[in-house]
Every structure is written in C-alpha cells, then in structure tokens.
Design a protein around this nucleic acid. Sequence first.
DNA 1: GTCTATAAGAAGATAGAC
DNA 2: GTCTATCTTCTTATAGAC
Lengths: 197, 197
Amino acid sequence: MSTEGKGINAMNEPRPDNRERIIEAANRLFYTKGYNQASFADIADEVGISKGNLHYHFRSKVDLLEAILVVRMKEVKNNLAQWDEEYPEAKDKLRRFVQMLLSEEAELVRYGCPLGSLNMELGKYQPELRDQSRAMFDLFRSWLEKAFKQLGCKDSQSLSTHLLTMAQGAALMTYVYADSQLLKDECSKILEWIDSL
Amino acid sequence: MSTEGKGINAMNEPRPDNRERIIEAANRLFYTKGYNQASFADIADEVGISKGNLHYHFRSKVDLLEAILVVRMKEVKNNLAQWDEEYPEAKDKLRRFVQMLLSEEAELVRYGCPLGSLNMELGKYQPELRDQSRAMFDLFRSWLEKAFKQLGCKDSQSLSTHLLTMAQGAALMTYVYADSQLLKDECSKILEWIDSL
DNA sequence: GTCTATAAGAAGATAGAC
DNA sequence: GTCTATCTTCTTATAGAC
C-alpha cells in the first residue's frame, strides 16, 4: 500500500507524505464534524490537495474510514501498553483510565467521545462497520477487565463493563451540556467508586 | 417514488390528518435512521404522500424537527406527570425511571436512546437546535432532582445528574454492543445504588 | 501523484397545475 | 391539499491531461 521513495517531479510534485496527511485530517474531521458530515471536499481542503487526488489515495469514503480505524486502534493499543508500564498497581491503572477523560475535557465538551460518537453514528449509518468500530471499545474493556482481575475481583467482566458505561455516560452528558464541571463531578464519583473496591 | 393508490377516493383528495401522520412517521424515522439520514423522500414514502405535499405541511426539515421536538417534549411531560401520580414515594419514582430503560430494551438495542442519539447528532450537525434538544434532558433532570430532594438528599442536583449519566451510559453501551443483558446488568447496578441511598 | 473537469445521483426546496 | 416537474446544491466518484 505504501508508495515510498518516488522521484520528485518539477510540477505537480508528489508528496509521499500526503497519504499520511490525509489520514490525519480525516481522523480529525471525522471526530469534530462526524463521519457523515465530513465530506471529501472538507478533507481535501484541510490537506490542501484536490478532491481527485484524495480519491487517488482512497477509492471510497469507507476505505478512508477503515484506514482511520486502524490508526485509532493503534493509538489505543499504544496508550494501554504505556499505562501498563507506568502503573503496575491495578487501582492506578483504573484511575489512569478515568484521568484520560479529565485530560480530554476540552475535546469532550466540544465534540464528545470519539469512540462513543463514532459508534453511535456508524450504528445508524454504516451497520457493516459496527464491528470494527466496536473493536476500540473491546480494547478498553478487556484491558480494564485484566486490571479488575489483578485487583482480585471475581466479577471483573461486569466491573469493566460498568466502568466503561459510566465513562461513556459522563462523556455524553458532558457533551450534551457542554459542561466541564459535570465531567469533573462524574469523574470524582467514579474515582470514589474505584477507591471503594 | 411510488404513487401508491390510497383506494379511498378518486383524485387528490385532502387528508386533514396528514400533518399528524407526517409527524408520526418523521418522529419514528428520525429515531430509527437518525435525523440526517432520514430524508424527505423516506418520510413521504412512509406516509404515502409526495415530497411536494410534505413540503406544503413543513417548509423545511428544521421545521419538521421542531414539530417533533414539541411532540417528544409533551410525551416526556405526560410520562413524568403520570409517574408522579402513580408513585408518591420518592424511591419508587427513581425506580420507575430505571424501569423505563428496561421496558424499552428492544428499541435501545436496535436504535439507542432517542434523547441521547438525537443530542449527539444535533450537537455536531445543527448547533442551533442543541438547546431545544437538550430541553428533554432538562425535564428528566429536574424531575429526578425533585425526587432526590423529596428523599431528603442535600446534593439532589448532582445525584440527578449522576442517575441520568448512568442511564445514558447504559443506553449507549447497550446499543453499541446490541446486548440486552448488558442493559439488565447495568440497570441492576443502578437499582442497587438507589436502594443504598 | 496531482490536477481540472465532469459525471451521476441524492438531498432539500420551489412552481404551478389540478 | 396534493400532485408532478423542476431547480439548485452538495455529495461521492471517475476520466483524462500533465
């Protein structure tokens, strides 16, 4: 798929990194505007290339979305792996998860949760992509489950689902009310719950 | 596109109730397909009228949405008023709220929460309608707050927000995983929390 | 690889006959 | 009130020159 190391022309010079730049821009726009509202024109404009060029790199919008899901999956995996290194203690892992919400306050208020909103949208519009979109949730879910197991909880599966559920609820309400205080309050409650385990 | 015969009269006869039928169909389609994915053609087809006729009753899509928001607001108000009558006890009121989720299991699994999904969608697409869409949340929020106050809780506001947050999280996760068991488990946890108050 | 030009279709919305 | 026909704009996607 990658076409690296091509010669550089005089005019219409190739930008070997354009594919990456497209993915970056689309990743951002699919989040901020939503998948269906972010058009090829928007993305091409953002990158500074023509729509035709965009279609050269990605035949269809679904192709582009799939490439972005791959990127997001990788990002989540990297984050979780890093947290595993930094926080050997199970409860610290759980707290770090909640801390993610707080550190994304500004984006949550303006655009909602990138996982939750994409899953809502794809569920209604692109049923065939639900599985891939849901896979990001699965990463968090199984990582949290491992942490609960490490903590010695029997019902680690239901606890991980519960934590994810509270986080999604908090993210959604934060977005609906565009209220960062709401986010802080809900995260405090989640952290208290973690402490009480 | 089909100009299906209504079989009742000969030609172009007035249907005084078409306006109501349009609202019903649009209300359903805005929920099941989403506001942006439900087109005028979809709605006209569902009602069995032409797009032109639809535009006679509602000049724009936003007009139609506003009419539907009025209907939904009324429905929520009616529900809350009825629950007030049926459940004088504060905790019973809170339980009834959770019961609503369980009784909407099939719809939540397939289409998500009508309030949550609409708010997510309008937030990204129609910022000018966020306030109206959010108003449905406000109805629940203040009703719950009253119940918590009746129960003697000082922090009734934060508790009502918290309950709404958990409900939204549960609805979203139920939808993403199309998992009715998840809904039952989360509702059980919420009910336990209510009991513990 | 990149561009311009254009197809092909769907969307919201309007005009005018009946 | 209802219809058909049409307009305009936006969308995804393709064709072909450079």
